[in-house]
């Protein structure tokens, strides 16, 4: 079985981003970039399936600028077998990403696609579900456990009220939530080995997919900021303030 894992190059999760003063976007110059953390979890899950003998090959794919090669090399160093980079210069929306991934899935024929549940830059949380729709496959989003059983996968999902277990027919799309696993760090020998693993470059035109944006971004601004309030000296003073000043406690 082949497993496909799409990965996205995003601003590192530790970076405090800055909004450009002219409102045209977020300043990405000289900012540390990394693999989207949820995608790292997806890569880890695919590699574990391979190590458990349930998958033969793990193919990673990224849609992004030339530098997304680094992201793919990271995935290869973790243990993926080969990589595909679909080169684009601008941001590509989830719908167009899903169309490109559908084309890749059609060409590669994976039985399972594992994705991060959302990217931490645009926070859209759409790509996996959209890909599943376009392929006409089953979907298991927000996964915290995945067990393959024959031609089915039993997936535990993180839902609002707790956990939900579903069974999906393969081929399927799984999107990874935080607690699915803890991704490994690549060892130095594996980082060296990853440099020799195959990385194929493509363009959206190779797949005949139009990646024009459907959403027009009119403005990007700082969120409203909260000011620090006051420090209170005791529990009694806190209660007094909540009752008499803030008015959020009635008794």
């Amino acid at each position: 079985m082949k497993v496909l894992v799409p990965v996205k190059r995003v601003v590192d999760f530790n970076v405090k981003i800055r909004v450009k003063a002219d409102g045209t976007g977020v300043d990405l110059s000289n900012v540390k970039m990394s693999m989207n953390p949820f995608d790292e979890i997806a890569v880890e899950e695919a590699i574990r399936l391979k190590e458990a003998g349930k998958a033969e090959e793990v193919v990673v794919v990224s849609i992004g600028p030339a530098q997304a090669q680094e992201t793919l090399r990271t995935a290869l160093a973790m243990g993926a077998d080969r990589a595909i980079l679909i080169k684009v210069e601008d941001m590509v929306e989830p719908l167009a990403v899903a169309k490109l991934l559908k084309a890749v899935a059609d060409a590669e024929g994976p039985r399972l696609v594992v994705l991060g549940k959302q990217a931490i830059d645009d926070d859209a949380n759409q790509t996996g579900q959209m890909l599943s729709a376009l392929l006409g496959w089953s979907q298991a989003t927000f996964a915290s456990a995945v067990a393959l059983e024959g031609d089915k996968a039993r997936v535990t999902r993180e839902v609002d009220g707790g956990l939900q277990v579903i069974e999906v027919a393969l081929p399927a799309i799984v999107t990874a939530d935080l607690r699915l696993n803890e991704p490994r760090y690549a060892s130095l020998p594996n980082i060296m080995k990853a440099k020799k693993k195959p990385l194929e470059e493509k363009t959206p035109a190779d797949y005949g997919v139009n990646v024009d944006a459907r959403l027009k971004v009119l403005k990007t601004e700082e969120p409203g900021t909260r000011k620090a309030g006051v420090k209170v000296a005791s529990v009694a003073e806190l209660l007094d303030k909540l009752k008499n000043e803030a008015g959020v406690l009635q008794f």
């Binding site: 759409q126 579900q129 989003t141 927000f142 993180e158 944006a213």
Partner: peptide, 19 residues
């Protein structure tokens, strides 16, 4: 919600709409 986030992007893709 986790239901809305699960279902609506699937709807959007089937309608060829960017959510």
């Amino acid at each position: 919600t986790t239901t809305g986030k699960n279902v609506l992007p699937r709807v959007a893709a089937l309608l060829d709409v960017m959510q």
